[in-house]
Amino acid sequence: MIDELEAMLRPPALEMAPYPPKFITLASGEVMVVRQASIDEVDTLLEVIDPLKHLHRDFYDIVSARLYSELLGWKVHRVRNEYCLVGVIDGVLAGIVNGRMFDERHGISYHTLALKRGLRVGAHLFAAKMEHHIEYLGEDEVWIVAESPIGHRRWMIEYPLATKFEIQHELGGAPSWVLTRETYFKAKPRLVVGTRPVPQDLLATSRPIKKPDLRTMLVQVEDTLEARL
């Protein structure tokens, strides 16, 4: 039971439609399930993200630090209308994206974190996030900022997004860009893929989430280079 003070501290939440899970056959032939994460899974996600705050490469540090606080905020009810989608391959976490509803018509994209590289996991999950805002949460537009030059190329130019410099994105700093319903549906055939429904047994493999061995996935490059010769 939450007491009166806690009730005041908790932001009132909007009704949010669920994201229907889908699956994607990746370049390797592996199958990635993309589904919504639930609050009880946040602790596992945080454990995976935690060490990446110290990976000073490709903006992993800042993305991980921010994602960590956003997910924690969601778990303890300090961020309003937040959601989180995960990509899971053979039960193992491959990537995380999150965002929130600003209001019924405007969405805010937070972060995209790929744990498995080389399979375009990040691009698939970013697309799923746009799909969620426009098609399931039913919003008209999503506000987006990129934190890296590559992110800029990937999202701003690839979709392509329009500028919306007049609004201040919650991530502060950089001016905001916007994905509208119209640009989304134009880009959809090219960028948004996935098959629904996910067969029950496949979906079942994605829960509980297994933690990836970061040494064999993302961090490998740095460490093994040192260790091998």
Binding site: I24, T25, L26, G29, G118, G194, T195
Partner: peptide, 25 residues
Amino acid sequence: NPNAHIKMELSLEGILHSPHALMNN
């Protein structure tokens, strides 16, 4: 090859034939 950059198997399905291939590849 332990010294190779990309250590990943590819499937014809994943890079060419699946409906998801255009985005994968």
